[in-house]
Design a protein around this nucleic acid. Sequence first.
DNA 1: GTGATTGCAAAGCGTTTGCACCGTA
DNA 2: TACGGTGCAAACGCTTTGCAATCAC
Lengths: 153, 153
Amino acid sequence: MVSRARTSTSARMSTSARIPVWEDALRQHGYRLTAPRQAVVEIVAESGRALNPTEIYDRARVAYPRLGLVTVYRTLEKLEELHLVQRVHRPDNCQAFIAGVEGHQHLLICQNCGRVQYFSGDQLEALIQRVEADTGYQVHDHWLQLFGKCGEC
Amino acid sequence: MVSRARTSTSARMSTSARIPVWEDALRQHGYRLTAPRQAVVEIVAESGRALNPTEIYDRARVAYPRLGLVTVYRTLEKLEELHLVQRVHRPDNCQAFIAGVEGHQHLLICQNCGRVQYFSGDQLEALIQRVEADTGYQVHDHWLQLFGKCGEC
DNA sequence: GTGATTGCAAAGCGTTTGCACCGTA
DNA sequence: TACGGTGCAAACGCTTTGCAATCAC
């Protein structure tokens, strides 16, 4: 979904630079900053690939072995609510998460290594207007994902 | 996914006209035509909305009360394999099915009543080429869905 | 100190599998 | 008749919930 306003200020920010921003956002929304939560934030903020809850769990337990899978789910819930992460839909799997960006960006996903790249969908406007005229629908949201092979694969 | 070849000949065909076509397709691929299978085919072929397995089960049991939910899953599997139905991804639910069409068509979904409308994405080509140039990815598949409100809602 | 957060265990839910019986071709 | 298809029941995997102990603020 791209029509919702983003509160994230982490647009175009890479890897570890996101971590303190996300931690501040959590605190500013009244959430406490705990060790398990930090472990989850670090993994998701630094990943260039969409990860599902179990993958996040496995990786975050390296830093914080006492972590429970439940905490991963609950932390992702909050990060999604704050638009810090977004859900990635794949043909098979719709429960993968990636660090979000500000504005109307879309996803380009490498089918080989899973690396995710954002791009802007400015040129969609004309298409959407044509579809609205043709169908009589009012379009509120759009959802575009490209699948392919990245430069390194 | 739009890059796969479609074997379906039901493009732009509406409602009940699809039923005999789908039944033939099943037979021609070596599948038997049984009463429970027909009940499922009728529901999905005639629906203008994406339905999930339980909805299909509930509706098909009106015509064939002995139907089991398992058979719905197994029939959908075959219909998807033959490209007669396609999966619709929604923010919440990724297990809904709608009658497919031939060619590279995309979905416009009414957020109120769930009605689905197809449209062509010709104008995406330029966007995809630009993204390929910008990112160094090779794009093999694209996935576009619009969400909005249909004329009647 | 207080209330949010945690992890465990158990429940819940949608989907898949094993299997004996049934029905199409 | 042969073998694909069916429905039941059970298994399965992922996600959510209840709860007492814990910990950030």
